[in-house]
Amino acid sequence: MCLGIPGQIVKITDETRLMALADVSGVKREVNIAPVLTGAIEALIGKWALIHVGFAMAIIDEDEAAATLKALHDLGETQEAHEAMAAGDRALEAGA
């Protein structure tokens, strides 16, 4: 919950709400890009970001992303993030 996880921004999905699709270790997830938006929104496509609970919080370079992913993987945090994302998807359907 506290550690960000690197993800690559692949597509802008909602320019008004500042949402984009990010690839987080193979899992695609919609994230908010407001905190890292400093110029044209399209310029973010292809960039790596540290993603915290659905928000891109910092732009990082590819090497930093790879090193961070390795450290998070060792700590079991990558799997934890993927499970949390899946739980979030289930929550939208459960009990509906």
């Binding site: 994230v31 908010n32 928000f55 979030g88 289930r90 929550a91 939208l92 459960a94 009990g95």
Partner: peptide, 17 residues
């Protein structure tokens, strides 16, 4: 009715739905 979510944005979407 307690649901685990990944992000407060999931909660927002739940409110919309």
């Amino acid at each position: 009715d307690i649901r685990m979510v990944y992000s407060p944005l999931d909660a927002l979407e739940l409110a919309r739905r």
